[in-house]
Design a protein around this nucleic acid. Structure first.
Lengths: 125, 125
DNA sequence: GGCTAACGTTAGCGGCTACGGACGTATCGG
DNA sequence: CCGATACGTCCGTAGCCGCTAACGTTAGCC
């Protein structure tokens, strides 16, 4: 066991889970790409896909719930826009993972070199 | 057969889909965090969770298939390690999305300013 | 050869989720 | 007021996903 949680960051974990799960769906990624360029209405977004408006509306709800979308109501139309802030948490998460992996890789490489090549250089550095 | 997959840095859509779907699961993220620090055997990883070894083995397979894990066989033990390269595609994807969102936000902000504040500055850039 | 340890794999099951159809609601126009 | 438009929401269904139990395989030891 062990949940040391070196970087709980409070809402970072939950938000990351929501955002990651939302991005795991190809449709939602496509929608996000679409609204990342310009602000579009739900109908226009739905027309860009072969699925029904119902599915698109649900996807929009999921994305909005994950903090990846921003909603703007104008009359009967609802315009959606991508939220960079929603991706910030994910970038941080990936960056942390990236750093850890690289550090571990370097450590293992040094250890392997000390075993296969030279043994006394282990204390070097 | 085999998987040369030298990490296609270009249209990593398929790879991004696999990696994103793999990371969408909390268990897999925890496993990845575990092996990001040090290289561990499947049994040790499985012991770190309350689920059975079968589930962990499947998670490891998924992560490995997504290019996020590296396998090293030693006797009956199989050591797993996180692969930074697997996260590279995701970082690129998020970075692109981030840039697009920010650009769109700035454009919309300028357009909004032109409407609410001044109209002749619309051509400024 | 026989035994144990470590691990992956297959089959079956329960839960979740994306999808489509039908319905209700809010807004604009005549 | 009534119709049309735009959108969200509820219900039922099909497919996917993660989990467990049982089995098969490979490596080390006596």
């Amino acid at each position: 066991m062990g949940q040391p949680a070196p970087c709980p960051a409070g809402p970072g974990d939950a938000a990351t889970d929501e955002a990651l799960r939302a991005l795991a769906e190809p449709r939602r990624r496509a929608i996000l790409r679409l609204v990342a360029r310009d602000e579009l209405a739900a109908g226009e977004i739905a027309r860009a896909f072969d699925v029904t408006r119902t599915a698109v509306s649900q996807h929009l709800t999921v994305l909005r719930n994950a903090g990846l979308l921003s909603e703007r109501k104008v009359g009967t139309r609802r315009y959606y826009r991508a939220r960079p802030e929603g991706l910030a948490g994910l970038r941080e998460f990936l960056d942390d993972m990236w750093a850890s992996s690289l550090d571990a890789a370097r450590r293992l490489a040094e250890a392997d070199r000390g075993i296969t090549g030279d043994g006394r250089s282990a204390a070097a550095g």
